[in-house]
Design a protein around this nucleic acid. Structure first.
Lengths: 113, 113
DNA sequence: CTGCATCCGAACGGATACTG
DNA sequence: CAGTATCCGTTCGGATGCAG
């Protein structure tokens, strides 16, 4: 499929990466083999349990991450990325590299026009 | 800057590409030299004037597009992309390519796990 | 430990009508 | 032609409290 406005598919990627915490969650799971719910709460500073759960559920429904529940007390839940989720890595990298190279606000670059 | 969760900069790109019509607007301006307000209204099916204006204004404030007003009657306004705006092309391409290759919903692929 | 339920305000996006 | 103004429903995300 060509990269032209008429065939724009960008929204499909954005609908997945658009959530406030989704990209950083995916990023963590791409570099860690598994992560527990409580570990996310530590690294995702400021996130509420409700948001964390909803973002994780969304990613799980998309098949991007895997959720494994250990039947034990106290409960233990591990999240990991799927192969399908890993296919998003180049996209996240592209966004990341653009941001560090070009994003203005953080580094007060002058206008480029 | 490394591509690690701790240094995640992805949000900067998303804050710009997140608007509902922003990506497709940029895409059009990347392949057309200039585009008029009325041309956008034709190709962006379903967009309201309010949305079109607000998205264009946002992109202009970011320095991604340029707005040129011709002092004549009837009015004529031309939009074009800036060099800064063109730097987003690889990002849009990455999202586009991922979408056509992997996005599920549109093509009813089975789960990949 | 891993959530769910509830309420709330803000932001987003659309519909409609009007204007220089 | 290129917008503005106004209203409004939906969604998003946060705060708080409770539960298996």
């Amino acid at each position: 499929m060509e990269f032209r406005p008429e065939y724009c598919q960008v929204q499909d990627a954005l609908s997945i990466l658009g959530g406030k915490w989704n990209p950083i969650i995916l990023l963590h799971l791409m570099s860690a083999r598994t992560m527990r719910y409580s570990e996310f709460k530590k690294v995702l500073v400021g996130i509420t349990p409700k948001m964390l759960t909803s973002q994780l559920r969304g990613l799980e429904e998309e098949g991007l991450i895997r959720r494994k529940v250990y039947a034990q007390v106290p409960p233990k839940v591990e999240y990991s990325i799927t192969e399908y989720g890993m296919t998003l890595k180049p996209v996240l990298e592209a966004m990341h590299e653009w941001s560090v190279a070009h994003a203005r606000r953080k580094y007060g670059q002058q206008d480029i026009r």
